[in-house]
Nucleic acid binder design. Structure first.
Lengths: 251, 251
DNA sequence: CGGCGTATTGACGCACCTCAAGGTAAGTGG
DNA sequence: CCACTTACCTTGAGGTGCGTCAATACGCCG
């Protein structure tokens, strides 16, 4: 399927692309869809395309020799899937990418992408910023893996979800299965289940797929790894904003 | 101190800089030194410069509320220290940077750097590649944190060290204190100490600061997280090359 | 010698993993 | 409408790797 210029501009990476450049890109890309559970590419496959998610969510993961799946990240609309691989000029995919739900993706040949990396206004800059941000998140998370308890990580993640999807913290549905979330947090699903009990005391209640964060102060103070070191992290502040407004704390 | 053109060209980031561009950069940068234990910048400080290490090693770390130091990375000559912060347009340093040993650093004003990010031939590309590589390493390491035992991580790290510094695997000195390495691996120094015993059986012996990796096949098979999923990782292959040559396996 | 930074060793507890056994809930076909 | 399947989740019991705390040892230097 041919991508429309508007579709491109809806993606952060190409948001301010010119008409001429956009048309060029349209001619060199297409939109593909990926059904739930379907692999976009697998570990070891040759890298043929650069992908950006237009709709849906993809799980990026690796498999341990023991057959255990380790989820690297869950990417959503606007995210590029393999920018790092394209940029680092790797030959083979280092990870698997599988659709969490029905997805549509912008597909650009990797050779074309590599040739024009710095041609488009702002694209190199945006890629740089996006990689830098992802690196930063990874560092925070690696830190939290060793620093925080499982419950803290879960609480932290639920709040991030809430901000990421612009959910109402007072009540929302988990966008993914609990098994997937646990894998994303690098804990076992059993451990994940058990943490949900303990979070009740911290103002976060989960029953089934329904989550509600009652008291962000309590929950926030309990969890946020970033806050603990700096003043207040972005997630934390945003969540407070959301809840304060609803609770009538705001101006 | 003024940087010489040759000094710049010795850094991967500027290795193929033209005379004209190099001169421009020389006029907009300087060389600073940092004594062992001295902070280059601290968490919360305003970001004023972009730094590249010319000589020495720097520890990049954060502090948990409990006062525990979490080492993000140990950077050496050629590495840029805060490329991610510069590129992500952050205002304040998110981490501490402290000299592990006497260091000299190329110091470029962050404003100048941000303006000329894409001006220099290849610089944006190199920064992209470097960020992508660092991101990839972080992902591997985060995976290993949950996948591998402490001994495996230590064994893996010793081999990486060996390749990174071009040490002779049959016998070399640890370039950092054990406490620092343990912190870098996100394990406690006590745990680190204890793993060294168990590694003896795997062909790696450590006494004092002296390390020798006897049998890379044994040690390699035991440890490498990358190998376990792909065929052979770069580190592993390089190390095998080194040892095979010495052991007379090579052609 | 004493003092300091660094490293080792032991005892102990706990958070998490593992394995195993239900328990839901949604979909399918009779 | 009810059996049956399948996917997902929960709960329990038991084991363990690593963190924690505390004591000791080592090497270096003044």
């Amino acid at each position: 399927m041919i991508a429309a210029l508007d579709t491109l501009r809806a993606l952060p990476l190409f948001s301010d692309i010119s008409k001429a450049e956009g048309d060029l890109l349209v001619r060199n890309s297409r939109i593909v869809t990926c059904k739930r559970g379907q692999f976009l590419f697998m570990h070891g496959d040759r890298i043929t395309h650069f992908y950006v998610i237009c709709r849906g969510a993809m799980q990026v993961f690796r498999e341990t020799p023991g057959g255990h799946e380790v989820t690297n990240d869950i990417l959503i609309a606007g995210d590029s899937i393999n920018a790092d691989e394209v940029v680092a000029r790797q030959d083979l995919h280092q990870v698997n990418a599988r659709a969490v739900e029905e997805c549509s993706l912008l597909e650009i040949p990797v050779s074309w992408m590599r040739e024009h990396l710095t041609d488009f206004d702002h694209m190199a800059g945006k890629l740089l910023a996006s990689l830098a941000n992802r690196l930063h998140s990874m560092q925070i998370e690696a830190e939290q893996l060793t620093t925080m308890s499982a419950s803290q990580m879960v609480a932290c993640y639920l709040q991030k979800l809430c901000v990421l999807y612009n959910f109402d913290p007072r009540g929302f549905e988990l966008p993914y299965t609990k098994t997937l979330i646990a894998s994303r947090l690098r804990i076992e699903k059993e451990t994940f289940s058990r943490t949900l009990q303990t979070l009740r005391e911290q103002g976060i209640t989960v029953s089934g797929t329904r989550v509600s964060i009652m008291d962000a102060r309590k929950a926030g103070n309990f969890v946020c790894g970033e806050c603990s070191v700096a003043e207040e992290c972005g997630t934390h502040r945003l969540l407070h904003g959301k809840l304060d407004k609803q609770a009538g704390y705001g101006t």
